[in-house]
């Protein structure tokens, strides 16, 4: 195996670290010096070699540790993975999409051999070698969606299309930005987005829904979303808010650089063939402020974005209480020079 996987934690002693290569390929979400909601959708995959946009499902140095963290979360709260009965077929579609993509994009890590519905899946990083019958759930230890998403970084929502809307009828959600799958499963697009401030009035969601409904087979898209998290914690769920909430108040000018993380979601959209459902993977990337300011362009830009952001958005994105400390810290890295367009580092 060419890729080295980190031995690290996302809770407790928080040993999560980004290598210099991981920092350089971090999906920095701001393409200009200010931020407001936008639909900002691009085709996926596609991007510079080595970037997280290169493959359908990015596998990086955090893979094995993230899957271990998911296992812990699921053991404590199995309701983080739910699938309403009509969504099993979409789960098989997703399993196929991920297995085929990973075996093609990372042949040294994964392999898939198919003879009709007799499938043989090998996941070397996780030490899995499994023969099963496609479309026969009895041949897997979990339902198809749970089986494959226990082996794939990122959260997953499977959206059922009906009545001109999308319904979140299945999902695997253990690294969410503060929303509860157990509560939101079964909701339509507008309902599960209801707590987001301002966006509905701006018509963003109407446009986004219209776009998503038109996504066809073979056309895949992505967008980036972001929030802020104290400590490199994947499980910032409302379920455990009373456990991780106090950590949000531990930010000081001395520790903000290594304790405050920018949390970026690489959201992708795929139309699934047999179920006609939409798969909505939400991949989480974490980088500390210290990581980010190693790239001068990002240091300057992040300072300007967070300094000028609408207070309601700062609140929704969960960093209003730490905003001043964050902005003061980042101001050291902003010399007022102009920044180049686009999200990638400058050199």
């Amino acid at each position: 195996m060419t890729m080295q996987f980190n031995d690290e934690t996302f809770r407790g002693d928080y040993t999560y670290r980004n290598s210099p290569e991981a920092i350089r390929r971090f999906p920095f979400p701001f393409d200009q010096d200010s931020y407001m909601y936008s639909v900002n959708i691009e085709q996926h995959p596609g991007g510079p070699q080595g970037s997280p946009f290169e493959h359908m499902f990015d596998v990086d140095e955090h893979y094995v540790a993230e899957m271990r963290d998911r296992e812990i979360t699921l053991a404590e709260d199995p309701l983080r993975c739910q699938s309403l009965p009509h969504m099993e077929l979409a789960g098989w579609d997703l399993l196929e999409l991920i297995m085929v993509s990973k075996a093609r994009d990372y042949p040294d890590l994964f392999s898939l051999t198919r003879d009709g519905n007799d499938w043989h899946w090998v996941n070397k990083p996780m030490g899995i070698d499994k023969r099963f019958t496609f479309l026969d759930a009895a041949t897997l230890p979990y339902g198809p969606m749970e089986y494959i998403t226990r082996q794939t970084q990122g959260d997953f929502a499977l959206l059922h299309e009906r009545d001109g809307n999308l319904w979140m009828d299945a999902g695997m959600v253990t690294s969410q930005a503060d929303w509860s799958l157990d509560f939101d499963v079964g909701m339509n697009f507008f309902e599960w987005h209801a707590p987001v401030p301002k966006a509905r009035q701006m018509g963003v969601f109407d446009k986004a829904l219209k776009f998503l409904l038109a996504v066809g087979q073979g056309q895949h898209y992505r967008r980036l979303n972001w929030t802020m998290t104290v400590n490199p914690r994947l499980d910032t769920s409302p379920e455990n808010y009373h456990k991780w909430g106090p950590e949000k108040r531990t930010i000081t000018p001395e520790n903000v650089g290594h304790k405050q993380f920018l949390r970026v979601e690489l959201q992708t959209f795929f139309r699934l063939p047999r179920s006609n459902a939409l798969a909505f993977p939400i991949r989480c990337y974490l980088a500390s402020l210290d990581d980010l300011v190693t790239q001068p362009k990002w240091g300057r830009r992040l300072h300007r974005v967070l300094r000028d952001i609408d207070p309601d958005l700062a609140d929704y994105k969960g960093f209003a209480v730490n905003r001043e400390v964050i902005v003061n810290y980042l101001s050291q890295y902003d010399d007022g020079e102009p920044t180049s367009p686009g999200i990638f580092p400058e050199d």
């Binding site: 009509h86 077929l89 059922h160 087979q217 073979g218 063939p273 006609n276």
Partner: peptide, 12 residues
């Protein structure tokens, strides 16, 4: 074209 569906079954 690749297949598209405007008349899918409601599997519920």
């Amino acid at each position: 074209s690749v297949p598209a569906n405007l008349f899918q079954l409601d599997l519920r």
